[in-house]
């Protein structure tokens, strides 16, 4: 792999291990995650519920739950390691570097404050020019709402979240996250809780706004279809590992990892063939995960070696990595190692 300078990335996550303290002990959820995002790039993380997508992005924004523990790894944000950052810098990162759009638009706005006051508060702590000025806050809020195609911004500002529809609320969250310039927007399944008819509009708005504001985007989704539509690159995640990553087009042309293949087969096709039976088995128990490849117990191609050591990410074409021993022979390199 040609080692890119870490300064070229907005985010560069290297070999990240995260566990959670539970009543029974520690669950080892993230098992060496690698992920990077270039400036103005849109990437998508795809995987089933519980595979660690949210944990990965929460680690980047440093909003993990209190029982989480980062065991090892590095997270660079604009070239600075988030994990060793002094508190003051971390505050600045949160205020102006990264913003997060959550899955549930009902729960992601505070129920007892008006939309306007919440949006103004975000601008106030964003560190943009004139952030402390009430007039600036007001103007930026109105502008952000307008740009998100919300009708009648003044009325919306004076409304409480429960007076608005789910689609409107999610647009407000998008507006809020981009009311000031951000290097990175993280959207955690932003449309899962919306009507299908609205999902598309909200995604379009998100994509458009991210492009206009020249932010990078990490979109978490269950759906490979959404990922393809939204992202330049896709990461496929399974049980705390990135198992495959490639440019969107490349991934759909040539999906390699057995898990990705399973996911692809799960996409219902218009041409018929019925609904796929899915991938047999389920996610491993994080308390006592399999020692080697975590997908091995469900993998039709698993060999003894798979159960012994975690396969590295083999580069099989430019920017296309897959974590599976079956591709060792075709690999031109391994992520994280100079060839």
């Amino acid at each position: 792999m040609t080692q890119e300078n870490k300064n070229d990335f907005v985010v560069d996550v290297r070999n990240l291990h995260v566990s959670f303290r539970t009543f029974k002990g520690y669950t080892h959820v993230l098992n060496g995650v690698n992920l990077n995002v270039r400036k103005r790039e849109r990437i998508s993380i795809v995987g089933e519920t519980g595979c660690g997508k949210t944990t990965t992005v929460y680690s980047i924004a440093q909003i993990l739950a209190q029982n989480a523990r980062i065991d090892s790894g590095e997270i660079y944000f604009n070239g600075r390691n988030v994990l060793t950052m002094p508190n003051k810098e971390l505050k600045a990162l949160r205020a102006s570097g990264v913003s997060v759009i959550f899955q549930d638009p009902i729960a992601s706005l505070n129920p007892v404050f008006t939309v306007g006051s919440q949006m103004k508060e975000v601008i106030r702590y964003s560190g943009v020019e004139g952030a402390g000025d009430k007039k600036v806050q007001e103007e930026r809020t109105i502008a952000a709402l307008k740009e998100t195609h919300l009708p009648d911004p003044e009325r919306i500002m004076n409304s409480y979240p429960f007076q608005l529809s789910g689609g409107m609320r999610q647009r407000i969250c998008i507006a809020m996250s981009l009311s000031t310039p951000r290097d990175l927007v993280i959207a955690d399944e932003p449309t899962t809780n919306l009507d299908v008819t609205i999902q598309d509009q909200v995604l379009k708005t998100l994509k458009q706004r991210v492009q206009e504001k020249e932010s990078a985007l990490i979109l978490i989704t269950h759906s490979l279809g959404v990922a393809r539509q939204m992202a330049d690159r896709i990461y496929v995640m399974y049980a705390g590992n990135m198992v495959e990553t490639a440019r969107s087009g490349d991934l759909f042309r040539r999906y390699c990892h057995p898990y990705t293949q399973g996911l692809m087969q799960c996409i219902p096709k218009l041409s018929g063939g019925g609904i796929s039976e899915g991938i047999p088995g389920h996610l491993p128990n994080y308390m006592d995960p399999p020692p080697g490849c975590r997908f091995a117990p469900r993998c039709p191609y698993a060999v003894p070696e798979c159960r012994q050591a975690q396969p590295p990410l083999y580069e099989i074409e430019p920017e296309h990595y897959v974590s599976c021993y079956r591709y060792r022979d075709q690999a031109s390199g391994v992520m994280g190692e100079e060839v």
């Binding site: 924004a61 600045a92 949160r94 913003s99 549930d104 992601s108 505070n110 975000v122």
Partner: peptide
Amino acid sequence: KKPYADAERAYGIP
């Protein structure tokens, strides 16, 4: 535990 609390932290509100 509600997402709005996470969001407020993520936006750097003290």
